[in-house]
């Protein structure tokens, strides 16, 4: 892959030059967290850690009309927005690669594919915080799924060019880019060493398929099920969660019917409920088990890696401390420190 150098001072100029590809989106501070927002590049936060909602929102919007029905006929509907999305960390790009694998297999999803084509993806390196564990999920380095990838070396970026579209993006402003020198490579090696040593959290997932399998009947699921609020936050913030619901909605003003696709969650009670009221997963524990079995066992057996990219969003977001860290610990019979652990002691 071709790698070039971009001076930090030219960064804003470069990103502005990309506006011809579409709207400029990137990580912006919001309260104590970050969000992907449409903004000028001066406002992008280069030190941003995980955003609240992952970049999947650009490819499978939270809610989108996929078909419209009027005068007795259906017609296809999609609002494709051309965007330049800046600031995706390696875990985020790995998650999008899972999305790509998933949505382009079997019956390729035309909506997803069009969104993918309309977006220019610019990755950005990061330094892990205490909730990142992408070293364990082997998603701390990425070599495909982006158009450009920027590694921040302080006063300069190294820029990996990952696609012909990325090549086109820098061609117009070629004068901003320089060839990489031996000194740059040394700086990168130093940075990389620091980055790799910065991981504080370790969640080894290697043995998980067997452990989850053996723990299928474990009472720990009931304990967590008791604590779970079925709020669906874990699935909304998870960058590898792909599930959706389809609902028909009548638009009175337009006198037409919209077939809507909405994010959906396997922890919702209605998720596995069929007409007539039978629910294949009535208990919250059953639904939680489905989520973690799917991430750690199912996906592993199908694609050879877990459907977890180590972003730490569930650790930050779950209001009742049910997340990849506590679940893995609990299944390995380690202390989790979660409040429901004490609940178990009380019940026992």
């Amino acid at each position: 892959m071709r790698v070039l150098k971009l001076k930090k001072g030219d960064f804003v100029l470069f990103l502005k030059s990309l506006k011809r590809f579409g709207e400029l989106w990137g990580p912006v501070k919001k309260g104590d967290s970050y969000v992907y927002a449409r903004a000028e590049p001066e406002n992008f936060d280069l030190k941003a850690i995980r955003t609240i909602i992952p970049a999947k929102k650009f490819f499978l919007p939270k809610k989108s009309t996929i078909l419209k029905f009027k005068n007795g006929e259906w017609r296809e509907h999609q609002e494709v927005v051309n965007r330049v999305i800046f600031g995706l960390h390696p875990c985020e790009i790995h998650a999008l690669n899972i999305y790509h694998k998933f949505y382009s297999r079997l019956y390729p999803d035309t909506y997803y594919l069009k969104n993918r084509e309309a977006n220019l993806i610019i990755g950005l390196s990061c330094i892990p915080d205490d909730k990142c564990f992408c070293a364990n999920t082997r998603t701390s380095v990425v070599d495909e799924g982006f158009d450009l990838f920027l590694t921040d070396l302080g006063d300069k970026f190294l820029v990996w060019i990952g696609s012909p579209k990325g090549e086109t993006a820098i061609r117009h402003v070629g004068h901003l880019f320089e060839t990489v020198t031996a000194e740059d490579i040394e700086d990168y090696i130093t940075w990389r060493k620091e980055r790799d040593e910065a991981f504080q959290l370790k969640i080894p997932l290697e043995g998980m398929p067997e452990i989850v399998s053996f723990s299928y009947e474990s009472s720990i699921w009931d304990v967590m099920g008791e604590a779970c609020l079925s709020c669906g936050t874990c699935t909304m913030v998870c960058p590898t969660c792909t599930c959706f619901d389809i609902q028909d909605e009548y638009d009175i003003k337009a006198e037409e019917m919209n077939r809507e696709r909405l994010w959906y969650s396997c922890v919702y009670r209605e998720y596995s409920m069929v007409a007539g009221g039978h629910n294949f997963r009535e208990a919250r524990s059953e639904r939680l088990k489905l989520w973690y079995t799917h991430k750690l066992v199912g996906f592993m057996s199908k694609y050879g890696s877990p459907a977890c990219v180590g972003c730490g969003r569930c650790i930050v977001s779950c209001p009742v401390e049910i997340n990849i860290l506590t679940v893995v610990k609990a299944l390995k019979k380690e202390k989790t420190g979660a409040f429901w652990e004490r609940m178990e002691v009380k019940n026992a």
Binding site: F102, Y103, R105, L106, Y107, D109, T242, C243, F244, D245, I246, Y264, C266, Y271, S272, M273, V274, F280, L290, T293, H294, V297, G298, F299, S301, K302
Partner: peptide
């Protein structure tokens, strides 16, 4: 039999373990 919204192994509502009942 399961609840299905897409029939194409995407919406996830029919999933059991690592199998999509629809595909």
């Amino acid at each position: 039999e399961r609840k299905m919204k897409c029939g194409m192994g995407k919406c996830g509502q029919c999933v059991v373990g690592h199998k999509y009942v629809c595909v």
